[in-house]
Design a protein around this nucleic acid. Sequence first.
DNA 1: AGATCTACCTGGTTGC
DNA 2: TGCAACCAGGTAGATC
Length: 277
Amino acid sequence: MPELPEVHTIARGLERQIVGQTIALVDVKAPRAVHGDPAVFSAALAGRRVASVGRRAKLLLLDFSPPLTLAVHLKMTGRLYVPARDAQPDKHTHIVFHFENVGTPSAPDRLFFHDVRKFGYCRLFAAGELTQWEFYRRLGPEPLELAPAAFPELFAGRTAAIKALLLDQRVIAGVGNIYADESLFRAGIRPDARASTISHARRLALGAALREVLTAAIAACGSSIRDYRDASGNAGAFQNSFQVYGRAGRPCLVCGHTLAAIKVAGRTSTYCGRCQK
DNA sequence: AGATCTACCTGGTTGC
DNA sequence: TGCAACCAGGTAGATC
């Protein structure tokens, strides 16, 4: 389930592998993996060169020349990667992007969009259109670019559970279930605490905890649980640093109290009833 | 308006 | 063993 650190890692890996490559042909095997007309999608990409690979929130953004932007949302199980030369698409490979350099063994020849659960999608934007996209336009600030002093203000006037707001991409971008739970633990805040009841100082601490956990996760190339792999098929390492995520029923690593699991905003949320108030 | 709930989808795990 | 029930979770869309 790629969140900000995982999408960041994938973008950096893809950048190394495919910038400068030109698309020859796009084979859309599952129309639903494309938002919009798959035939238009394929035709528009043919002949374009990958100019850069970036990220905004949990979106991968591939910029092409002549100008065109491909936004890819991996949702839970999506993967975008350069397969081995002899690898065959399987039933979950929904789009195959073929590059032009078929006769150059050292260069990537394809890019696979693979998604077991089919929640992910690819969507194409003409120059300047990305920022008109409703979803994109409403995204909140990037947590690693936000001034620390501005973080507490994100929750001004909000009465929802703090975790529900951390997961809301319009409040702050790129945070998912893992990093929400991990940052709340590090800040000593219960996931179901109402935002309006949390002091300014504790909201500041949450911002700092979130930056720390995201930065450490990026340094570890993300967290690998189940499906996640980076653009080269490598696992991340941050799952070894989880304090609470996936540890319900086991002892708190700080105080030994048994970690509890509750549902907040429809998501399993693991926390320590002694360390988090 | 904000808050909350559910559908979407498949594979792995659990329980009988 | 077989199979049904449940769980994972980001976002859109519906409802309260």
